[in-house]
Simulated assay, not measured.
Amino acid sequence: MRKYKHIKTVLLMFVLIFTVACSEPDIEGYIIEIDEQRLLVAEDISIEKYEEIKDKTVNEIDRLSGHISLINLSYDDSSTFEKGDNVRVWIDGGIDESYPAQAGAKKIEVIE
C-alpha cells in the first residue's frame, strides 16, 4: 500500500509541474517602444491598429478614439526584441493600474 501512496504523490507532483509550466500568457500584443530593460506593449490589437499607432506617443495613443491598453514591462533582456514584434507575455507579480499600466515580465516570447 505504501508503494501506491508514493506513486500517487509523484504523479500529483508531475501534474502540478506540468500545469505551471504550460500556463497561458497573461497578455498578447505588439511592442511599441523598447528602452533599456523596458518594453511598451499595446495589448490585444490587430496588425492594422499597430500600423496606425506605431509612430505615435503615449499621449497621442491615449487620445485616439477607442482606448488602447498599453503596458510598460520591465524585463532584463529587452535587447532581444524589436519594435513591432507580436509577443506573448507572462507577468511576474501584479500589474500597477496606471496609464500605461506597469508590470514585471517573467517571460516574453515572439509570436511567429
Rank of each mutant, 00 (worst) to 15 (best):
T9L: 13
T9R: 12
V10I: 15
L11D: 08
L11Q: 12
M13R: 12
M13S: 14
F14K: 11
V15F: 12
L16I: 15
T19K: 10
T19C: 12
A21N: 14
C22Q: 10
S23H: 05
E24C: 04
D26Q: 03
I27D: 06
E28V: 11
E28G: 00
Y30E: 07
Y30R: 03
I31L: 03
I32Q: 03
E33L: 10
E33Q: 13
I34S: 10
Q37A: 10
L40Q: 06
E43R: 11
D44H: 11
I45V: 12
S46T: 15
E48W: 07
Y50L: 07
Y50N: 02
E51F: 09
E51G: 00
E52C: 08
I53Y: 06
I53Q: 06
K54H: 11
D55K: 09
D55Q: 09
K56G: 06
T57I: 05
V58I: 15
N59M: 11
E60G: 07
E60K: 08
I61A: 05
R63F: 14
S65R: 12
S65D: 15
S65G: 14
S65T: 13
I68M: 02
S69V: 10
S69E: 14
S69Q: 12
L70M: 07
N72W: 15
S74F: 09
S74H: 08
Y75Q: 05
Y75P: 03
Y75A: 00
Y75R: 05
S78E: 01
S78M: 00
S78H: 00
S78D: 03
F81E: 04
F81C: 02
E82P: 00
E82Q: 13
K83L: 02
K83F: 03
D85R: 04
D85Q: 00
N86W: 09
N86K: 14
V87F: 00
R88T: 09
R88F: 08
I91R: 04
I91A: 01
D92E: 15
G93A: 07
G93R: 03
G93W: 06
D96P: 02
E97C: 04
E97I: 14
E97T: 13
S98M: 14
Y99D: 09
P100Q: 05
P100G: 07
A101R: 15
A103T: 01
